[in-house]
Design a protein around this nucleic acid. Structure first.
Lengths: 188, 188
DNA sequence: GTCTATAGCTTGATAGAC
DNA sequence: GTCTATCAAGCTATAGAC
C-alpha cells in the first residue's frame, strides 16, 4: 500500500519552489528530498526521468497555473483597465511582493542546449501574447500593443532581479502599479 | 621557472565569464579549468580560497571595470545627455547587445547567505548612485533622480532576462536607447 | 607557477526489500 | 509508493613533484 505521503500538486509545488530558488544546476536531489520529504528513490518513482523530468514538470505546472490564475482576467470580459488591475494584483501575490524569483529567469541560466530552454521560451511568448491582446483591446496598434507587452515583461523581470539583488521591493511595487497604465493607458 | 601561462586580468576575465553564464552553483572547477587552460591546482595557487574566492574576485573585477569603463562618463564634465549616451553605448558593448548576462543577476541566486550576496548588493548601489547623480545634474529632485536611476537599472536587467529567455534582443536595444531620456530627459 | 595524482564528499541514478 | 543501500561519476580541495 504505502499511500502517497504527499499529493501530486503539493509535491510539484515544492519541487518548483526549489528550482525557482536555485535554478536548474543549483537544484540537487538532496535539496529536493529535503523540500518534499520524499527520498531519492521515491522521487524517481514519480518522475522516472529524474531531475530533468522534474524541471520540465515544474515549468509545465507553473506555466499552467500562471495562465489560469494570473493571465486569466486578461481574457475575460469587462473594461480592459480593470482586468489588468486584477492581473497586477495577482502578480503581486504570485511573486510574494517581489520576494520570489521567476522560474523562467532562474531556469534560463547555463548553456543554450540545457533541458528546459524551449519550454521557457514558449512560456515567455504566451505571457506576451496575453498582454498584447489586452493592449490591442485597449486601442493600441498591433505593433504598439506588442511593444507595451514586452515592456511590461521587461519591467517585471527587471524589478524581480532588482528585488533579489538589492533587497529593496519598492521598484517591484512600482512596476506592478504601473502595469494598468502601461497596457491600457494613454501614450506617455 | 614556469612563468604564468595567462596573465592575471585575462585569467580573471575568463573566470568571470564562467560565473556570468552559469551562476555560482553552476560554475564547477572543471568548467573553470576548461575556460582558463589552467588545472585545478593552478587555480588554487592563484586563489587559495578556491571557488568562493574566485567568485569574489570576479565580482570585484567586473565591478571595477564597470565603474571605470561604463559609469565613468557619468562623472566627467560636459552636457549630461551626451554623457549618458556614452554610457549607453558602452553598456551595449559590455552586454554584447544583450547576449551576455549580468553577473549581478546570475550571482544572486540561491540562499540569502551565499558567499557573494553582500558584494552584489554593494555593486548594485554603486550603479544606482552614479545614475542618480547624473539625473540630479539634469535637474531632477533627489527623489525623482533616484527613482529614474532605479528604473534604468530595472529596465536593463529586465531586458537582459528577456533577451536570455526569449532570444529576442530588441527589447534590450530599446532599453539602451531609452536611457538618455530616462536619466536626463523631460517628464514623460 | 604549473602540473599529476589523489582524497573525501556529493551528485544523479538504480536495485530490491517491504 | 516509500524506503535503505549502493553505484559510478562528478565535485571541491590538497599534497607533492618539477
Amino acid at each position: 500500500m504505502a499511500r502517497s505521503k504527499i499529493d501530486d500538486t503539493e509535491l510539484l509545488d515544492r519541487i518548483s519552489d526549489v528550482f525557482r530558488r536555485y535554478g536548474y544546476e543549483g537544484t540537487s536531489l538532496s535539496r529536493l528530498t529535503e523540500a518534499t520529504g520524499l527520498q531519492r528513490a521515491s522521487l524517481y518513482h514519480r518522475f522516472p526521468g529524474g531531475k530533468e523530468e522534474m524541471a520540465e514538470a515544474a515549468l509545465t505546472g507553473v506555466d499552467a497555473s500562471f495562465v489560469e490564475d494570473i493571465l486569466a482576467p486578461l481574457s475575460e470580459s469587462g473594461e480592459p483597465t480593470g482586468r489588468v488591475r486584477q492581473t497586477a494584483k495577482r502578480l503581486m501575490a504570485f511573486y510574494d511582493e517581489g520576494k520570489k524569483a521567476c522560474l523562467l529567469d532562474t531556469m534560463s541560466l547555463g548553456d543554450k542546449g540545457d533541458p528546459p530552454r524551449a519550454h521557457v521560451r514558449a512560456s515567455f511568448e504566451a505571457w506576451i501574447a496575453a498582454m498584447t491582446k489586452i493592449a490591442r483591446e485597449a486601442g493600441f496598434t498591433p505593433a504598439m500593443a506588442k511593444r507595451r507587452a514586452e515592456e511590461a515583461l521587461v519591467q517585471i523581470q527587471g524589478a524581480l532581479v532588482f528585488s533579489r539583488a538589492s533587497g529593496d521591493r519598492k521598484p517591484f511595487e512600482r512596476a506592478i502599479a504601473a502595469l494598468p497604465d502601461l497596457l491600457t493607458g494613454a501614450d506617455r
